[in-house]
Design a protein around this nucleic acid. Structure first.
Length: 501
RNA sequence: GCCCCCAUCGUCUAGAGGCCCAGGAUGCCAGGUUCUCAGCCUGGAGACAGGGGUUCAAAUCCCCUUGGGGGUACCA
């Protein structure tokens, strides 16, 4: 079959090329039609059958998230935790938490606490643990001594007089069969003997990791691909200890917005920072899930349930991803739009109480009206606070650019006075009444409504952009609205006098 | 230095040799809706890093180069 087509190709390539390029194209087209489509159809069938059964792992899946408590839960760590969690939930497995606190200098209780809190906030519940490596010292010691007894490790004293146990590398070639990267081959000769038990009696990372993963019967190690280089050491340990290897899946790292390693200079890097900015946890989770994984179609907004259903390590890609705050904002906006007023009000209430805003006079009812008005206008609760500050304070902060452009103009005080006297007799200070009243005013004066909308907006909100003007006045209330108009008129008169217009 | 990983619009991604002069989303630009902004609707620009192979056919497979990332600790 293949020969036949090669023969065909040669004829057309060699003999007719010089004469008519079109002939070649036609020939290619024919070949394509004749031999291509059967292949396509066959492959489709084969692939289809391949796809069907590879998602469910048989046997009990056990995975872990193993942060070291040296700081807040990092965005990258959160995504690793999420993938482990999704994998466990998808396979009805166990997700356990292990705190790798073997660095006595840098580990803190506060960090552990912060990590647990962040996990809870994200909705990543664990089935076992948290286990603490610092509480398992005798186990590591036993295994380390066993390795020494076997001749796979030895005591080593450094220049400072500290004695540790070092593992003796001896395998020639170590192959890692990674679930996302495929086979990776390492030359053990270039890996130096490494410490497994430090002088202080604590295990080193690679050793503790192996001992615990084996002891906790971890079936799949899902972690950042910055650990790929550690894996041959760990495999060597498994081999020396006669333990069964887990499956490995090294997921791509999350980089900062400039493509370099995510660090403090990129701004927010911890889960708590996003919580404190007022992002909804589901939005962050959804965004994180799509960094290095996709469900395979064009769907971008997925509920936890959908993510669990669709998650597969097979669809995790190898390329590191840059964290894009702008897209997170969009996604967050989507979640906020799709969240009910009631839920948002509850979240906003807590958030406002923690902010610098005086919330003593706010009622839930009023707050829900505010949320309703701003529902599609904010990406996170901090933005809501910033946009609605003028509602809560007696001393409005005026944007100089806005006042210059819309207030400090000839005729503005007169217009505002007209507005003032038009709306002050209103009994029901609601959006419909205000709109009817002010539209009448501009119609009678023969001017466009926009002529008065912006000056009013700046006068009562201090800024040139806000929610609808009638709704804003309604929510602000008659008393406050009139007071702000009055103050603005007074101040403008003052300015007029000083400037001498 | 040595070892390892990675490479599709600015960004997140679809792509499993012919469905691709590459699809979606975001961001950007333009128009529409409108009292401003946001939102929403419509349209537009925008990518297979480069070079060699393999093949009738390559974004897809192989090699090299380049670029990015990681490791090389008694950190994890």
């Amino acid at each position: 079959m293949a020969d036949f087509f090669a023969f065909f190709g040669k004829i057309f390539n060699g003999e007719i090329r010089n004469k008519l390029v079109i002939c070649k194209l036609v020939a290619n087209f024919l070949i394509c039609v004749i031999c291509g489509f059967p292949f396509v159809i066959c492959e489709c069938l084969v692939l289809d059958s391949m796809y069907k059964n590879d998602d469910v792992i048989s046997g009990g899946v056990r995975v872990r998230f193993a942060p070291s408590p040296t700081g807040y839960l990092h965005i990258g760590g959160a995504r690793t935790a999420l993938f482990n969690w999704l994998f466990a939930r998808h396979n009805n497995g166990i997700f356990l938490l292990r705190i790798e606190d073997t660095d006595q200098q840098r580990s803190t209780k506060e960090a552990t606490q912060a990590i647990l809190e962040s996990m809870k906030w994200l909705g990543l519940d664990w089935d076992e643990g948290p286990y603490f490596q610092s509480q398992r010292l005798p186990i590591y010691k036993r295994y380390a001594e066993q390795l020494v007894a076997q001749g796979n490790a030895y005591y080593d004293t450094d220049a400072e007089g500290r004695t540790a146990i070092r593992f003796k590398m001896q395998d020639n070639v170590i192959v890692l069969n990674d679930l996302v990267h495929g086979a990776i081959t390492f030359d053990a000769a270039v890996i130096e003997d490494f410490v497994i038990l430090k002088a202080d009696g604590f295990p080193s990372y690679n050793f503790a990791c192996v001992v615990d993963d084996a002891d906790m019967k971890i079936t799949h190690v899902i972690r950042g691909d910055d650990h790929i280089s550690n894996t041959p050491k760990q495999i060597a340990l498994y081999n020396a200890m006669g333990l069964r290897l887990p499956e490995y899946a090294h997921i791509p790292m999350i980089l900062g917005e400039d493509g370099s390693r995510l660090s403090k200079r990129h701004g927010a890097t911890s889960v708590t920072e996003y919580r404190d900015k007022g992002y909804l946890p589901q939005a962050l989770v959804n965004f994180l899930a799509l960094l290095g994984w996709s469900p395979g179609n064009d769907q971008e907004i997925l509920s936890m349930k959908e993510m669990i259903e669709k998650f597969s390590l097979k669809r995790v890609n190898k390329t590191s991803a840059q964290f894009d705050n702008t897209k997170l904002d969009w996604m967050s906006g989507q979640y906020i739009k799709n969240t009910s007023i009631e839920e948002l009000t509850a979240a906003a209430r807590l958030f406002f109480e923690k902010s610098d805003i005086d919330t003593t006079r706010i009622s839930i009812d009023w707050l829900s009206r505010l949320i309703e008005l701003y529902h599609e206008r904010f990406k996170n609760l901090q933005e809501l606070v910033d946009q609605t500050r003028f509602f809560f304070t007696d001393s409005v902060e005026y944007d100089p650019a806005a006042t210059d452009k819309f207030l400090k103009r000839e005729g503005i005080p007169e217009i505002l006075k007209e507005v003032y006297s038009a709306i002050s007799p209103l009994n029901s200070f609601d959006r419909q009444g205000l709109e009817g009243c002010l539209r009448d005013l501009t119609a009678k004066a023969g001017i466009g409504f926009s002529k008065i909308a912006q000056p009013i907006r700046v006068a009562i909100t201090g800024r040139s952009a806000s929610a609808g003007i009638f709704e804003t006045m309604e929510l602000l209330g008659k008393e406050t609205t009139l007071k702000r108009l009055e103050n603005t008129i007074k101040n403008l008169d003052g300015i007029t006098n000083v400037v001498g217009l």
